[in-house]
């Protein structure tokens, strides 16, 4: 690796000051599962690395009945799925957190880093979008918020300015009649990058869908919100014909490319299949006798 200075600030302010001094040459470090690889490959050569893991705000995972979940940017995936209160209310987020890499990766990798890295295939991002997550960003003079669906602007690029950092994600508390799911397609079961990822959150009344959110990953330069499919589902029973049609609408929202991992046509097909399955999985989680996630 190239030479750089290492800092481990203990407050957001201290980190902001470091960013002000080092500007675009500084990078935040959470689990390092993207950053250290990029530095070793030479694709990222920051002169200053700011370890975020000693900042308590960024390590905080807290559930509040009024405001919902605050997920600090540096909280590793393992702390999300091992937290039963979080797991029961945000199963879609937990689906994604459990899919990222291997045990070795999930014990270190954060959702904040997954988002800030800006990959279109990042597993946590469609789940966050479906759950209505908002990114909290700290800068030199103020904090601002950006909905997660607007956070990534291009592959590897986000709305963060050189002097800003991601504090964490605020996720509203889903009502009792709502649930969520994230499904992805990969050729292997573990340790693979999504060819397609679909996150859904649904509010139900009996077998009827009151409201839905659907977000797609790995089928465009950034994550895509499948608005038409979601709007179509509102007020419908989730029967086979409805699910089929919602899947088709979601597939139409996708803008995939052909690559070695799958053709655009294949990816669109998978979007429709996974959308249907994710909706079914979410509805199943809301049935009274449903156990576990």
């Amino acid at each position: 690796m190239h030479e750089f200075s290492y800092h481990a600030p203990t407050s957001v302010n201290e980190a902001i000051n470091l960013l002000a001094t080092h500007g675009a040459k500084a990078r935040l470090l959470c689990g390092g599962t993207d950053l250290i690889i990029q530095m070793r490959a030479g694709t990222q050569q920051p002169s200053c690395v700011i370890d975020a893991k000693r900042i308590s705000d960024l390590r905080r995972l807290s559930l509040d009945p009024a405001t919902g979940l605050f997920l600090g940017a540096a909280v590793p995936c393992v702390e999300i799925y091992q937290n039963e209160a979080v797991a029961s209310r945000y199963p879609g987020l937990v689906d994604a957190a459990k899919l990222i890499g291997s045990v070795q990766i999930r014990d270190r990798a954060s959702v904040g880093g997954n988002l800030a890295n800006g990959s279109p295939a990042a597993d946590s991002v469609p789940a966050l979008i479906a759950l209505g997550a908002v990114a909290r960003i700290a800068g030199p003079d103020r904090e601002r918020t950006v909905p997660v669906e607007k956070f990534v602007v291009a592959p590897g690029r986000t709305v963060l300015k050189a002097d800003e950092l991601l504090v964490g994600m605020q996720i509203p508390l889903p009502p009792a009649n709502a649930s969520s799911a994230y499904l992805r397609f990969t050729p292997r079961n573990e340790m693979d990058i999504a060819v397609v990822g679909v996150g859904v959150a649904v509010k139900m009344s009996g077998e009827g869908c009151l409201e839905a959110q659907i977000a797609l990953g790995a089928v465009g330069p950034t994550q895509i919100v499948a608005k038409e499919a979601a709007t179509y589902l509102a007020g419908k029973r989730l029967d086979e014909a409805t699910l089929e049609h919602a899947g088709r609408l979601a597939a139409q929202a996708a803008t995939p490319i052909d690559d070695t991992r799958g053709t655009a046509e294949f990816r669109r097909h998978i979007v429709s299949v996974l959308t249907r399955r994710a909706l079914l999985a979410t509805a199943a989680r809301l049935r009274p006798n449903h156990s576990g996630n």
């Binding site: 689990g31 390092g32 690395v49």
Partner: peptide
């Protein structure tokens, strides 16, 4: 207490 890849940890992080 957590399993990690030591190639993806900086030496300074283990203080």
């Amino acid at each position: 207490g957590r399993l990690v890849c030591s190639c993806l940890v900086l030496g300074l992080e283990v203080a």
